[in-house]
Amino acid sequence: MRRLVSSHTTEFALLAVMVLLCIGLSFGTDRFLTVSNAFDVLNVSAVNIIFAVGLLVVLISGGIDISFAVAASVVQYVTVLALSALGGGNWAEGFIIAGLVGIGLGSINAFLIYRLQIISIVATISTFNIFFGLLMFFTKGVSIYNLPDWLSNRVVFYEREMADGSWVELTLPVVVMILCCIATWFMMSRTTIGRKLYAFGDNPEGARRFGINIGAMHVISFGWLGLMAGIAGLMQAHYAQEVVPNALYGRELDVLAATVLGGARLGGGKGSVLGCVLGVLLVSITQNGLNLMGVSPFAFKMIVGAIILVAITLSSARFDRLLPNAMKASARKRSQRP
């Protein structure tokens, strides 16, 4: 158990903060600690979590991507236009088109970074401008409101009325989000590809000398983020029941902040799906709680910002230094014992 704690400090610290926050909020408002509210938080966070696990893979492999959120907007638009060209389409076609377009856009980033050796932040800021500029140019900023029925109708996997009259709903975005998390977790910690991505992010030169195909690593990490961005884009269109070209503009930095809050390290080699999910949830729970407490939405954005500022600054000063000393000492002793 101690080893588990000391090797997952960020996750446990986040969990602890989250528990404290939940306790505090449940005293602050009686509507917070209900099952239906928990599902609300999940429904609201689903799209961001899908983005975040995609971004996580890129961060672990040592890159950064600014373009994924506007890429998702491009995917939404292209997918909806393609579906109407196909005469309506269905969920399977929707996912395939969104996924492929997303992977394609991600591969453009991989090409720029690997083939043209442009560092990832410069390359993705450029593609951010290209994707968004072209999208707004071709769409003239016009939104699409008449989505196919299957896409705009809510898909509910499980619903139940609670004793207090509130509804619990398990909706499609949440199910898709859970599948994306499992897939990403599986790839990163159970397959050789995952090991290679971690290794490449940890020590690129060491990985190269070991004969790891660097080009493939770029395509896989940015392709995966593209896939996740495509799926997230489709889910966001489904959730919002419309496609607005600049709806996701600016989302990239919020997701980046939440992912890093979850322990992923800029520079690579470190990060976990659990931490990443907790990072996004912490932000959502804070917003949700403040909302329920009747705090002005303008104020809670500021409060969330302050919390992220403090958390990120503190976590750079290393969470594990905040662990009780006794625990650290005994962990050290245990590992030294032959």
């Binding site: 303008f298 910002g305 302050a306 500022l309 990120i312 600054t313």
Partner: peptide, 11 residues
């Protein structure tokens, strides 16, 4: 730091 500062200042 500046990203979280951005979110804070915007808020």
């Amino acid at each position: 730091v500046t990203l979280s500062m951005m979110i804070f200042l915007r808020g």
